[in-house]
């Protein structure tokens, strides 16, 4: 069951048990809601974007270990990035998880989620936060779903 250990790495358990940036943000200027109807995972993402830069990111919601850890790691990774850099991370993360795509992007800590690639049924858990990020940056009013 070594591939289970690849999926459920210690860092993921840590972020699942103690999710970072897990709070509502009063002064957020971009928010979006994500929902995975298949398993019921839900999250609300809060961003504070100032002059094209994400100065703060947080989330709230409930989900499996993969989706919670992914949202926690993502919000950590976003802080201080420009919107353009965040979009680059989105594509890099997507490629990492699906095993597709072009030139590798340095994803830093986010790479602990690479094990998801071997679990196709869990890809949507890992990408829910990122699709919600896309919606927040596009400022779509509608909640996004993974379906």
């Amino acid at each position: 069951m070594s591939d289970l250990r690849d999926l459920y790495q210690e860092v993921i358990f840590d972020h699942n048990r103690n999710p970072r940036n897990f709070r509502a943000m009063e002064d957020a200027n971009r928010t979006a809601e994500g929902f995975n109807p298949l398993c019921g995972d839900r999250l609300t993402l809060y961003l504070k974007v100032d002059d094209g830069r994400i100065v703060d990111a947080s989330f709230q919601g409930s989900g499996c270990a993969i989706s919670t850890a992914s949202a926690s790691l993502m919000t950590d990774a976003l802080k201080g990035r420009t919107v353009e850099e965040a979009e680059g991370l989105f594509h890099g993360f997507h490629d990492l998880i699906t095993g597709e795509g072009g030139a590798p992007v340095d994803l830093g800590k986010l790479e602990v989620l690479s094990g998801v690639r071997e679990f196709p049924t869990r890809v949507k858990c890992a990408t829910l936060a990122w699709h919600t990020l896309n919606a927040a940056l596009d400022d779509q009013g509608e909640p996004v779903t993974t379906e």
Binding site: L7, Y8, C64, A65, I66, T121
Partner: peptide, 8 residues
């Protein structure tokens, strides 16, 4: 979470 239970 049940989804993690299902995978394992």
């Amino acid at each position: 979470h049940p989804h993690d239970i299902g995978t394992i």
